[in-house]
Structure formats: C-alpha cells, structure tokens
Amino acid sequence: MRQAVSLISGLLFGAGLTLSDMVNPARVLGFLDVASGSWDPTLAFVLGGAVLPMVGAWLVAARIGKPAYADTFPKKPAARFTPRLIGGAMLFGLGWGLVGFCPGPAVAAISLGGAAVWTFVGSMLVGMWLFGATKRFRTG
C-alpha cells in the first residue's frame, strides 16, 4: 500500500507541476526576474495553492497522531539556523536563478525538454552524489 501511495503521490505532483506550467523554466524565470518589465506572478499562486492543503494536512496529522501506513509523523526540526541551512539555501538560490529549474520541475520535465533537461538533471545528480560522498568521508 505504501508503494501504491508513493506512485499516486508522484503522479499528482507531476500533474500539478504540468498544469501550473512550473515544468517550464521560462515561466519560473518570469517570476524570479523582477527587472524584465513583464513580471509573471504565477509561481506565487502555485506556492499558495500548494501550501493551503498542506496546512490542513498538518492539522489533520496533529489530530490523528499516526499516519495510515507508518508509525510516526516526521518531527518538526528545532529552530536552529545552521551555516549548512543558510549556505545550502544560498547555493540552491543561485543555481535556481541561473536557469529556472529546481529539483521537482527538472525531473518532471525529463520527457518534455530533450538534451538540455538531461544535462541539468545529470549535473544535479552529480551534485547530490558529491554531497553524499563527502558525508560518507566525514563520518568515516
């Protein structure tokens, strides 16, 4: 059942990104580039539309106490603003603003965009792998 849920959630996520055109980096850059003279607020509507159901989901989670097919809900992390959090978010923002892809839309666009999307996703996977490799190195 957990596996069926995972596939359905992935399909819903991909459908949402496609319907809202967030799979299109040109649309995302239209939001991030506030100096172009033709600002496109779509991304704000998408984020708002996604956060609202999740506010409800967290309220439901607090009431039921336990997920349907798992033992616990993920704990809310302590409010520690570590250099890792801040530095990581800065690197991500820089990469996001250069091309207009963040991880979800880039992966979702694999069947839509040809070599450019593959190049981005391949590089992103290398970046993630590098992070994993240094983590292994640090923990011995």
Binding site: G88, L91, A106, S123, M124, V126, G127, L130, F131
Partner: peptide
C-alpha cells in the same frame, strides 16, 4: 546550475 541546485 545543476551542480549548484544538487549540492545546495
């Protein structure tokens, strides 16, 4: 961009 997004 891909490397920055992946690592970041």
């Amino acid at each position: 961009s891909g490397l920055l997004v992946g690592i970041g």
